[in-house]
Simulated scan of single mutants.
Amino acid sequence: MLDFQKGAPALYLQIKKILRTDILNQLYPLGTYIPTETELEKIFGVSKITIRNAIQDLEDEGYLKKQKGRGTLVIQNHYFNKLSKTMSYSEKLVELGILLSKENISVVELTLHPNNPAYDLMEPDVLSISRTFLANNSLLSHIETYIPKSLDVALNIHEKDWSLYQDLSTHGIIINCFQDYFSAILADAHIAKKLELTIGTPILKRIRIGYNHNKKVIEYSIAYYLSETIPYIIEMGK
């Protein structure tokens, strides 16, 4: 069940992955308790500290909650936080029959400069993900996202219909809440080139700060929209 060979992932990470899969597959349904630490020690043949580290990670990610004297409760059994009924902009466009696609997707490692607005919000070593969206084959938006390098994820950007949020979810990384800040700006040379605009063209800018279960910032995105192409739509449930 576990790989004890040299070079294999840490045992607690292997156990965390197994437990998370069991939770997502409803082996441990929502509102039930996972086996005790002692039982898990026997199941996996590892030390108590290894089990505790695995459980702590799953608690940090919002899957589990320790209850004193009772055990460890399953409080979430899906990849995404579904407490909100908010429909995303992309989902709304798809619902309206608009064909969305992406191009020029890239991922690079970098260290944030102290002047970068994300510097004070997250770890300085990040993955920078850049992509351009098209609606019905016409340029719609350009988005640049930072996520902490310490998340240690290998993004599958070459997969068809790749989605950053879905990719993160396969690693158990959940955006539990976010804040969006909108402003109207004039396109500078960088964005004008990305969206094939004249410098100074009015566009919509959105900054998104995404948090995990522990209110740690795990996403900082800057998006630029050609709202004249398609208005930015926010739907807050029905």
Rank of each mutant, 00 (worst) to 15 (best):
V108F: 07
M236E: 15
P124E: 06
Y225D: 06
V153W: 05
P117R: 05
Y79L: 09
K48H: 11
I185H: 09
E144K: 05
L93K: 10
G210E: 01
L197M: 04
H171G: 02
P29M: 05
K82R: 15
I49L: 11
L151T: 09
D60S: 06
S88N: 05
F80H: 15
Y79C: 07
I234R: 15
L24F: 06
P231T: 12
K16A: 15
Y146V: 02
Q67P: 01
N53I: 02
L168V: 05
S221A: 14
L58R: 02
Y211F: 12
K238E: 15
I218D: 04
R52S: 04
V107C: 07
S130W: 00
A189C: 04
P117S: 07
K65S: 03
Y12P: 07
H158V: 02
I191V: 05
S101M: 02
K149M: 10
T50F: 12
E39S: 09
I18E: 13
K68L: 09
T229N: 14
A10S: 07
I199G: 00
L139G: 03
G69I: 09
G31W: 12
I105T: 13
E228N: 14
K16Q: 15
S141T: 10
R52E: 01
L93P: 11
E196M: 05
L139E: 03
Q179I: 05
H142V: 05
S138C: 04
L121Q: 07
L140F: 13
P29D: 08
I222R: 00
L11I: 11
I157H: 10
K85S: 12
Y33T: 06
L110H: 08
H142Q: 01
L127M: 11
M236K: 14
Q76G: 10
T132F: 08
M122Y: 01
K66C: 03
E144N: 08
I55D: 00
Y89V: 05
H113K: 11
Y28F: 13
L93S: 09
I143A: 14
Y181G: 00
S88K: 10
D3S: 10
I209T: 10
L112W: 05
L139R: 11
N212G: 00
E59S: 13
I51V: 05
N104R: 12
D125R: 15
A184R: 12
H171M: 02
S106D: 08
E91S: 15
H113P: 01
K149T: 02
T145P: 02
P202C: 07
K6Y: 09
K82P: 12
Y225I: 07
L164H: 14
I230T: 10
V94P: 01
P9M: 10
L96K: 11
I218E: 04
T36Q: 09
K66A: 13
S84F: 09
F178K: 06
G71P: 04
I199N: 03
Y220A: 03
I173N: 02
Y33P: 06
A192N: 04
K17H: 14
L99P: 00
I234W: 04
E228G: 08
F133M: 07
T132W: 08
Y165M: 14
P35Q: 08
Q166Y: 13
V94K: 13
S101L: 02
G45H: 11
M1L: 13
